[in-house]
């Protein structure tokens, strides 16, 4: 059986990208947030995705980090 790797090799590059993006941010005033306040810009799953996330938790081995269940509360893994 192929041994699972703890972290993929792309992770350092991904973290470097995140740090670069974070370092390039500018302060956005309240009056400039009309686009950010749009319902569809919310940094969370949509309400209509609720059951989709639930079946994925049952049918896949991985879960969590998406605002949904992280384990427990159902007969799933």
């Amino acid at each position: 059986m192929k041994k699972a790797r703890c972290f993929p090799s792309a992770l350092p590059a991904f973290l470097a990208l995140v740090i670069f993006v974070l370092s390039s941010c500018t302060t956005v005033k309240e009056y400039q947030k009309n686009k950010l306040n749009d319902n569809e810009m919310a940094l969370a799953a949509r309400k209509v995705e609720k059951t989709e996330m639930s079946f994925q938790t049952y049918r896949e081995g991985a879960s969590g980090a998406n605002g949904g269940k992280t384990g427990g509360g159902c007969g799933c893994n």
Binding site: V21, L22, S24, C25, V28, K33, L43, G64, A65
Partner: peptide, 29 residues
Amino acid sequence: RNSFSGSFSYSQIINPSLQLALIADVVYQ
């Protein structure tokens, strides 16, 4: 079956059109 989890996130506005979030969970069952 007992499940205990810690969920940590940081969200950041980058500019008036872009925002992102980093989320890390630790789950023990």
